[in-house]
């Protein structure tokens, strides 16, 4: 199957291919690795949300349990603004990050949204330290004519805990 938008979809929507989801995730990864955060922020629909689950996560929603990040749209915007500032000391200078994304799956295709998962390994380098963050994404993506956007972006670390120095000062 090629990456073109197929029209033969469920009611009103269009069928999303894994290829299209992969392109979306790869592009997101490169925007983040290149610290092009304004562009990254445009990948969210207005009102989109982002979560990073804790390592004891058992499927609960961040409105009832703790998490590492649970940003609504305004907080994502504030986070981007902060990370672009020279006063975001934890990320000045920026960490070098290198993201590998694989095992992309379409879990469920709906009319307006598609639910996808993928594995990630993010290597982060700073101050002579090397850190790897291993985990899984589970996103709800909004299907638009011109592409996909985040309705809900969730990262689920696989590690048992954040290793020494492995803080979450960047976008996981």
């Amino acid at each position: 199957m090629d990456g073109k938008k197929s029209k033969e979809s469920a009611v009103g929507g269009r069928t999303i291919t894994r290829h299209e989801v992969e392109d979306f995730l790869y592009r997101e990864a490169s925007l983040l690795d290149e610290w092009r955060l304004d562009e990254w922020f445009t990948l969210f629909e207005e009102g989109g949300r982002m979560e990073v689950a804790t390592t004891d996560w058992k499927g609960w929603d961040s409105s009832s349990a703790g998490s590492f990040m649970c940003d609504d749209y305004d907080l994502i915007k504030a986070r981007v603004k902060r990370l672009k500032s020279r006063k975001a000391h934890a990320e000045n200078p920026h960490s070098r990050t290198h993201r590998m994304i694989s095992n992309v799956l379409i879990l469920e295709q709906g009319d307006k949204t598609v639910w996808v998962s993928a594995n990630f390994i993010i290597h982060r380098y700073r101050d002579g330290g090397t850190y790897s963050y291993v985990g899984r994404y589970e996103h709800v993506l909004l299907i638009e004519d011109e592409g996909l956007r985040f309705r809900f972006r969730r990262s689920i670390p696989t590690m048992e805990a954040m290793d020494a120095g492995a803080r979450l000062s960047f976008i996981l």
Partner: peptide
């Protein structure tokens, strides 16, 4: 209220918040 509480606190305190990473950096 629970949701507001958690969102507000996580956005400040914790290794993924808008403030604690700078403490850790310190």
């Amino acid at each position: 209220v629970r949701a507001l509480r958690i969102k507000t606190m996580v956005s400040f305190v914790g290794p993924g918040g808008l403030a604690t990473p700078d403490d850790i950096e310190a």
